[in-house]
Design a protein around this nucleic acid. Sequence first.
DNA 1: CCCCCCCC
Length: 440
Amino acid sequence: MTHPISSLSPYQNKWVIKARVTSKTGIRTWSNPRGEGKLFSMDLMDESGEIRATAFKEQCDKFYDMIQVDSVYFFSKCQLKPANKQFSQLDNAYEMTFTGETAVQLCEDADDGGIPDIKYNLVPISEVSGMENKAAVDTIGICKEVGELQAFTSRTTNKEFKKRDLTLVDMSNSAISLTLWGDDAVNFDGHVQPVILVKGTRINEFNGGKSLSLGGGSIMKINPDIPEAHKLRGWFDNGGGDNIANMVSARTGGGSFSTEWMTFKDARARNLGAGDKPDYFQCKAVVHIVKQENAFYRACPQSDCNKKVVDEGNDQYRCERCNALYPNFKYRLLVNMSVGDWTSNRWVTCFNETGEQLLKHTSQEVGEALENDPAKAEEIFSALNFTSHIFKLRCKNEVYGDMTRNKLTVQSVVPLNYKEYNRHLLKELQELTGIGSSSN
DNA sequence: CCCCCCCC
């Protein structure tokens, strides 16, 4: 006999609930004047309601791996306390803390003991425009574009954050930006353009547009096995997402979406990069020459510092940004290559992530090969020659002394999808000639 | 006992 979540209170400790885990945070550590430790928290749900539970220190270690999102468990002997509504979006006056007595047991019934599935109130992307700032949104879309991993320090809290912006599109012919944070951002692989299902994302208003942000209590599922996902996949793979008309998010200069197609010749003719802000465009190009000289540098080993270190000899490397000496360094890539489209050739620069992606080796492997194994380096670099890619480029004039040079930096690389690229070419042909405008 | 979810 189990108890409904809605009946839990601090005044009664003899209960067992049967609940589905709807979300789970990563392990987080804290350190403040009152002490330090680690914790994770999870959201639980049954037919009667929902509640947040947090496991600290020993309980964090004991239960973290066992607790799986979507599974149903029996929980007992947790401590109940009033929820701090300031921090909780769940509909419950209380929250739970795991104790030394807490017991958790997987419910192995095929039907999960009748506990309802997580409900997704899926909203078409087009409808997010009409929703209020900070509202919670469940939606599903194809990750059409994926931005680079970005790190920055918050000016208010002085903390380092990592984020990555995705662009989701759906059959409402709309696109919206979704921001991932921390490990979700670091580990995300968007190159296969997966289906993304999210629950409880928060709306952020910015520059007159709206975007979504994955926060605490939000859930993201990649390629979920649900009918909506399969429908979207079919729609997108048949060109459904090619001409998205409605941008729910603001078009920012450096935004990850609505990158314009352009040839190198047009980019020159239109004087791209001459303004205060960089310009962005994408083109299909073939790799002609990849320079091995200065294709890497020895960088500060700190994970968030990529500054070049000074070799002090005696296996000591100085980072001037960290003002520290290290016994080691890490390799970072800075690869210059000449690429060409059908109008002209240009030199472009790839930094670490795009360099690794194109060379299909880690910066460590590339650096070691270049320093110790020229044959291996040649093999790695020559494999890139004459391959075609979609390059998303950042274009900006840079001044060196009295010289102004137009510099192209590779923001991201997508393998050439012939189907999608041909569709773009056909569309251009139609616009130029008016021929074929009534057919697809 | 956390409680930050950020930025342009």
